[in-house]
Design a protein around this nucleic acid. Structure first.
Length: 702
RNA sequence: GGGCCCGUAGCUCAGCGGUUAGAGCAGGGGACUCAUAAUCCCUUGGUCGUGUGUUCGAAUCACACCGGGCCUACCA
């Protein structure tokens, strides 16, 4: 069953056990699943491996908040993930977990290899520690003032106001988002992998291995490989939900260390269950047959899979990836998925309202193998899946099967003017497109075949033959037999994308579709079953109902903390309160820790009038404002509102400024305050605050 | 500031040095009635972002600019 000798191990990135599967995730799993099903249909040995990514601070914190153990949380999420994947016909050969014995063992093996090669060093890292919660705080769990621009309430890793990057320890007046406590700076030993010693190997591999799109290789060369590679921090001090490092008591492997090793663990478990050799996949003998290893990932985690991961594999003497396939993100109706618009669509929500096959086809028609984002335009979706799948493909069977129910296919394949041969010959080009992950091209070629087949039925007018009586019966059978064969041929090509349809077609005529080569030979003299609708048209009302349900769902969800651990794009934090207004903005930026009235009075907010406003041409976001606090008191303030406000329209209006903010030297001049404005999730604008009429410049906000 | 991607018919895209630039959908007209108001035929529609080069020849190559997006800015 493997004439080519190709053995192909395929992975998708491991979904984090802290959130449900959404349509963005599914781009990758559907892409991978189509690729694997295609390879299997071609007769190659292919295995599709994945697992839940389970470790890290985020899981630990969430479990604690929900009053259950991490393992209970992870088990529940695993069940949900598997149900979602199953619903979309994602057919893993094995679905493991990073919290498994196999993963612990393999982490140990890789670790030992790194140690023995002298690649592990240690040094102290200062990190903020929450004395109340008793944990070290990941960057996202601490907020405070930006050390550069003094914007309040910023995340621990970077400032949304000025874009500065820093460490949480640099924050002004930091607070733990877990307990509200003031974090202490504690020093703890961390273990590092010195991948700089593999710099030359990585430079060569990224450039010459053919595993990477040249654009990716170029990006890496420019951003990372042009200078020494930094040591990679791979441990976290206790308490941490993960594996304790065997030779370093009190240290745990960082979630990003054990996550990719989950690929190995899944392989190991699959091999165990199927009597296969792990080494045959990951440690092939030199000179012997080499299996292929394909990783499908999103562009956000390129770095880990193209530098750290190959470095780990190389150090451990394991096989390197044949291909790292990078895809873009998903937008819905042309914008980021949005809870308030109902376009933050969970897999489950889709399954409640729409056919998963339709999404599989739509994604396939959009995916061309590049790293560009793809857009799910729901109007286009409706139109396209109905036109292509129902109107063109299924319609072929729907309009001809009835004449074959009694007779079956003609004993010999009739003359069809070369239509079947034409589409059979196209099979090579279609296969090549699948192989390149250019599914869009494959779908175009298949639909062209469907168009030709429909034109054939139209020109032969079988319905007239049906009325012409017994004399035309043979001709009618021939025409319908041609149409049915062209239909089944198309179904073969669509099998990787639409496994359910393929199965139904097999039941209708010719038995289960098992091989790509079935597209090369027409069937003759076999029975045809009773036709029943294979796919239902998508109705607008279904889409509307799904969006409404999604909006409602988004309003109900609990806030869940995130950490930079998930291998796939993390879901945006859900909204905490159902209300007429979306909770999106609040949940995207949770409330700061409580402050006292004294804290508040430290900030002197004043009404001010804008006297002048001008563009700062060199700045992307800034307008230079001159504001009056009344009398002679004027200030120059740089405000990050360029693009949202026309400078001319601002002159004369009243705004609110932070009047006692320490002046700050910016690239374009000294900024002597800050104009307050609202912004956040749910809308992209920046909204200035205006007092009620009657307020005067210089009035303080109390 | 640095890097990258994109800009082709109303929409989604193909074409990526060689005859009058294509497809699907949408729009218009007609045909058919077997089919899940599906199908088929005809048709409207484009200064291929702008400009300058290279070339016998450019949507296709180079440079600049405009517009849109992404990644970065001593972060992995």
């Amino acid at each position: 069953m493997n004439p080519s000798g190709r053995r192909i191990l395929v992975t998708s990135a491991l979904p984090y056990a802290n959130g449900h599967i959404h349509l963005g995730h599914l781009v990758e799993y559907i892409q991978t699943d189509v690729f694997v099903r295609f390879q299997k249909l071609r007769g190659h040995r292919a295995i599709y491996l994945c697992a839940d990514d389970t470790h890290g601070t985020a899981i630990m914190i969430r479990a604690r908040q929900e009053g259950r153990s991490e393992r209970e949380l992870v088990a529940a999420m695993r069940e949900a993930h598997l149900a979602d994947f199953g619903g979309f016909q994602i057919a893993f050969d094995h679905y493991g977990s990073t919290d498994s014995d196999a993963n612990r063992r393999l982490c140990g093996e890789v670790w030992k290899a790194l140690r023995s090669k002298g690649l592990v060093t240690s040094r102290d890292v200062k990190q903020l520690f929450d004395p109340v919660a008793g944990v070290f705080l990941a960057d996202r769990f601490v907020r405070g003032g930006c050390p550069k621009c003094h914007a309040a309430d910023q995340y621990g890793d970077s400032c949304e106001a000025c874009g500065a990057a820093y460490t949480p320890a640099d924050l002004v007046d930091p607070k733990s988002t877990l307990s509200g406590a003031v974090p202490e700076v504690r020093s703890a030993e961390h273990l590092f992998v010195t991948i700089e010693s593999m710099h030359e190997f990585l430079a060569r591999w990224t450039r010459e291995s053919d595993a990477l799109d040249p654009r990716i290789a170029n990006y890496l060369a420019g951003h990372f490989l042009g200078e020494p590679l930094r040591d990679w921090d791979v441990s976290r001090p206790a308490p941490y939900f993960g594996f304790e490092i065997p030779d370093a008591t009190g240290h745990y492997w960082y979630v990003w260390f054990d996550a990719p090793i989950g690929y190995l663990a899944a392989t190991s478990e699959w091999c165990e269950a199927h009597g296969e050799s792990f080494d045959a996949w990951w440690r092939p003998a030199a000179g012997g047959p080499r299996p292929e290893i394909h990783h499908f990932i999103g562009k956000d985690i390129t770095y880990f899979h193209t530098l750290f991961w190959p470095a780990m594999l190389e150090a451990a003497g394991l096989a390197l990836p044949t291909k790292v396939r990078v895809h873009g993100f998903l937008t819905v109706n042309g914008a980021k998925m949005s809870k308030s618009r109902g376009t933050f669509l969970l897999a489950r929500t889709w399954l409640d309202h729409l056919d998963p096959s339709m999404l599989r086809y739509y994604y396939a028609a959009k995916l061309s193998g590049g790293i560009d984002d793809i857009d799910l335009d729901l109007d286009e979706f409706l139109q396209k899946v109905n036109a292509d799948l129902v109107g063109k493909v299924v319609n072929l069977a729907s309009r001809t099967a009835r004449w074959l129910e009694a007779t079956g296919l003609s004993a010999g394949y009739p003359d069809d003017g070369g239509l079947f041969a034409r589409a059979a010959a196209d099979g090579d080009a279609i296969a090549e497109a699948f192989e390149d992950c250019d599914f869009a091209r494959a779908m175009r070629l298949v639909m062209a075949a469907a168009d030709r087949a429909n034109a054939y039925v139209d020109s032969e007018q079988p319905w007239k033959l049906a009325k012409a009586g017994p004399d035309a019966a043979a001709r009618l059978q021939d025409v319908a037999s041609v149409a049915m064969n062209l239909f089944r041929q198309i179904a073969v090509y669509l099998t990787p994308v639409l496994p359910t349809l393929a199965e139904q077609v097999g039941q209708l005529v010719g038995g289960p579709i098992r091989s790509w080569d079935e597209s090369k030979r027409p069937l003759a003299g076999v029975p045809v079953g009773r036709f029943t609708p294979l796919l239902k048209r998508v109705e607008k009302t279904q889409i509307d109902a799904m969006l409404a349900a999604s909006r409602e769902e988004a309003g109900k969800q609990q806030h869940t903390p995130q950490e930079g651990g998930p291998m796939t794009t993390p879901p945006t934090p859900p909204s905490p309160q159902p209300s007429a207004d979306s909770g999106e903005a609040l949940s995207a930026e949770p409330l700061a820790t409580q402050c006292t009235i004294d804290d508040f009075t430290k900030i002197d907010l004043r009404v001010a009038r804008i006297l002048a406003a001008e563009e700062v041409p060199e700045a992307k976001k800034l307008l230079k404002l001159t504001v009056s606090l009344g009398g002679d008191a004027t200030r120059t303030v740089f405000a990050g509102i360029k693009g949202f406000h026309d400078p001319a329209a601002l002159v004369g209006r009243l705004v609110v400024v932070v009047a006692n903010l320490a002046p700050r030297q910016m690239k374009f001049g000294l900024s002597e305050g800050m104009v307050v404005a609202a912004s956040g999730a749910g809308a992209s604008g920046v909204y200035l605050l205006s007092p009620d009429s009657g307020a005067l410049p210089g009035m303080r906000l109390h």
